[in-house]
Nucleic acid binder design. Structure first.
Lengths: 224, 224
DNA sequence: TGGCAGGTTGACGATCGCCTGACGGCGCCC
DNA sequence: GGGCGCCGTCAGGCGATCGTCAACCTGCCA
């Protein structure tokens, strides 16, 4: 059952949204202030968020930005009374995944939430990830590079999975820790370094270009 | 550079869309029939597709459905003159990832395409600051000026970040020290000067205007 | 035109972040 | 209960990055 967080200060509107989502089988939850919403979005593992643009305590877009900045990729549907093209563009650029203007039809809102969730699930439901000459089978923990089959440990597989889902992007240690290990970064350990090394030893081979790059002071990056 | 397929029978509309996408750095390609569009979408490795709902040879939604049925997960922006809620819901349920109604503002169209691509690459954690032709990615410590990519040291990145957050403003050494180094100004050192020099060497290039200015006796300023 | 204050430059040593190899612990399977 | 596979920790080493210094340049003022 997919969980949806509704960040909306008007209780009547929130109740309507919640009811519509409920009818289509979602599990809605309501936060009535921006602060509460942000807090819960970070801790609560939601599948999607509907976000009112105008909140009494903070700007909705600031919430969207804060979420993206923390590496959360929960999709956000921004709901707003502001209907200018400029406003809509701003909303989307700020990190919103979709933008709907008030007044809106509940059914369209639900359809858009469904799209956001569908897209993410289809993305994460894939069992084989690919990048250039590298591929990874998430079930068997087997990678393949330039035709050669490579057996990975579960942790290595999870780590490589994260890189393959964010190719050509610098991933910070903090982010890696949160995603692969599930807790915050402990600067007193070199856990990540060691596992990176493991991966490198298995993935790199003479004649092939380096694929796991160190970005000194920033993190690691999968590319080329 | 991200490739976008435009499936649209009206050449004038297609040209407008293509131009707008081009301006934002996308690589648009145009298919003027449904059949051609489907064919190219399957073979062409696009990052996103804009799809006209009404095509002479087939229904746009049939294309969206066909794509999803074949396991293609290229995101689709459905563009249509039909503005009913029911139509919009149908468009989204059929496999569209977003729905835009004609007439539409080009800028909003581009913003929505950007969202679709951003989401798929899910480069969610990216934080980018911009000023004129200069931009800085705070995560990867990478700057870009006039298209050229520039790798920065962490300290350089932090310093440039400060300037980008206060553009066209004179920043005193004291202020810079407090923000970038986190402690009070030590007049016995020329630390800042040295790092400014580093930044200048990387950011300035023959033919481009100077962007980091010395304000003698006052500090430094980012402008023009 | 010479002195001075402030800014720029290049060189160099210190420091920090990252890599590496080895080791001990834990859980699972035989 | 012993062996093995996988994981996390640690200490040593190395090179990239940073901070310091001294010499040099530049613009302003007398």
């Amino acid at each position: 059952m997919a969980k949806v967080l509704i960040i909306e200060d008007d209780d009547a509107t929130a109740a309507e949204i919640a009811r519509a989502l409920n009818q289509r089988g979602f599990e809605p939850e309501h936060a009535s202030t921006g602060e509460d919403g942000l807090e819960r979005a970070v801790t609560g593992r939601f599948d999607a968020i509907t976000l009112d643009r105008m909140l009494p305590d903070m700007d909705g877009l600031a919430i969207a930005e804060a979420l993206k900045a923390r590496g959360l990729d929960t999709p956000v549907l921004v709901i707003s009374a502001l209907n200018d093209v400029d406003e809509r563009v701003r909303g989307l650029r700020a990190g919103g995944d979709d933008y709907l203007t008030k007044p809106f039809a509940l059914e369209e809102m639900v359809a858009r939430v469904e799209v956001l969730i569908r897209r993410r699930q289809s993305d994460s439901g894939r069992l084989v990830l690919r990048y250039k000459d590298l591929e990874l089978d998430l079930v068997s923990h087997t990678a393949r590079r330039a035709g050669r089959e490579i057996r990975l440990f579960p942790k290595e597989s999870k780590l490589l999975e994260f890189f393959l889902r964010h190719p050509e992007q610098v991933l910070t240690r903090t982010l890696i820790f949160q995603t692969v290990w599930g807790y915050g970064f402990d600067p007193g350990t070199n856990l990540i370094d060691v596992h990176i090394r493991g991966l490198r030893q298995k993935l790199e081979a003479p004649g092939l270009p380096t694929i796991l790059h160190t970005e000194r002071g920033a993190g690691y990056r999968l590319s080329c």
